[in-house]
Amino acid sequence: MQRMGNVLGIKPEAIVEYKRIHAAVWPEVLAMIAACNIRNYTIFLKEPENLLFSYFEYHGSDFAADAAKMAADPKTQEWWAICMPMQAPLETRKEGEWWAAMEDVFHVD
């Protein structure tokens, strides 16, 4: 199992709508997350900085393949088309990232 944390900005005017849609994520999107070996997926919001922090646990053996599978899913693409205009990627993210990956520096069970 691999723990993953990511950070992303959110446009202040979109916060209410972002919370609303994430209170009822489409079942097809949730099913694809599970099919891609992602568990314990959580998104946190930090205001007033307007940052989203995501945490999840990857239980598969090929994250790149599972990420590609998710990205190719039409329903996930539809969901992302709604979410992405609300988001504000960090300027410091790496090439190819939307959510900026974070380093795992500490964990205790």
Rank of each mutant, 00 (worst) to 15 (best):
A100S: 10
A88Y: 00
D73I: 10
A65F: 11
R20G: 10
E78G: 13
A31W: 15
K69T: 04
A88P: 00
Y58S: 05
A81Q: 11
S54K: 04
C83Q: 12
W99G: 01
W99T: 00
A72Y: 03
Q87T: 01
I82E: 05
E103L: 08
G60D: 12
G96Q: 15
I15Y: 00
V29D: 01
E13S: 12
V29L: 04
E49K: 14
E13G: 15
Q87N: 08
L52P: 02
A67S: 12
K69G: 01
V7G: 00
K19M: 12
I43K: 06
E47L: 08
N6K: 11
E95C: 03
Q77A: 15
F106N: 13
E103V: 05
W99D: 01
D104M: 14
A81H: 07
G60T: 05
A65N: 14
W26A: 02
E47G: 04
Y18Q: 05
L52M: 09
A88C: 03
M102C: 14
N50C: 13
R39S: 06
K19Y: 15
G5Q: 10
F44S: 07
E78H: 12
W80T: 06
A71Y: 00
W79C: 01
A72R: 10
N6T: 14
P48S: 09
M84E: 07
V16A: 10
A101K: 07
M4T: 15
V7N: 00
L90W: 02
A14N: 05
